[in-house]
Computed example of a mutant assay.
Amino acid sequence: MAALKIRKGSSKHSAYDLRDPNAEVIETHTLAVVVDNEAGVLARVIGLFSGRGYNIESLTVAEIDQTGHRSRITVVTTGTPQVIEQIKAQLGRMVPVYEVHDLTVDGPSVERELALFKVAGAGDKRIEALRLAEIFRANVVDSTLGSFVFEITGTPEKIEAFAELMRPLGLQEVARTGVAALSRGSADPT
């Protein structure tokens, strides 16, 4: 009788889930950090991540209050639940930080990302790229005889799915903005 060929660590959907139940689960969290809008603050926040070996998947920054001179940093990071709690605690102790919100834990949130894709191709590949762009609601923002530049907005998963479909059709370059996120609903019903 032949032995079963089961890969160690197969997915949780497998009938043969051989992953260690005591292993730490790596989670992805979206953090919104309100900080002073002054020179060096972003470097200090990033320094906290790099100095402790934490990974940043996505980072966006924009001023949200001109009169109060405040900016919002949206960071998508990964780690175990303990690491995520440590990141939030360390961010909260920094002097230029006013608020730290974990949008992944705080409740429903809306996440969007903007991306530009340059796709080169001719003939059937060109027609297929346009057809897929229409399905994904991507806009053509530039067109030449040999290529298109598509603009697409959506969740990071949607952006990644679009990229996977465009690769065999001649994907040449990708530029992504990073995740912008807000919690859903109103905090104050008045």
Rank of each mutant, 00 (worst) to 15 (best):
I159E: 03
G170M: 00
T67S: 10
A2H: 10
S11M: 05
G121H: 02
V110Q: 07
T80D: 13
I152W: 00
V149Q: 02
G185P: 11
V33M: 07
A163E: 14
A161V: 04
A138L: 07
V179A: 11
D142C: 05
I64H: 04
I26M: 14
T190M: 13
F136S: 03
I73T: 01
E157S: 09
I135Y: 14
S10R: 07
V61M: 08
I56P: 05
G170E: 00
A181W: 03
Q86W: 02
T78A: 12
L182E: 09
G121N: 02
E173P: 03
R70Y: 02
D17Q: 07
T190L: 15
T78C: 11
K158Q: 08
E85F: 01
H13C: 07
G92P: 03
G123W: 04
R19D: 09
P168G: 11
G170D: 00
Y54L: 07
S50L: 04
V97L: 14
D65Y: 06
D102Q: 09
V95Q: 10
S11H: 12
D65G: 12
A138C: 08
I46P: 00
E134H: 12
R52T: 08
G123I: 10
P156R: 04
V25D: 13
A89Q: 11
P21A: 09
M94I: 06
G107S: 07
V141D: 04
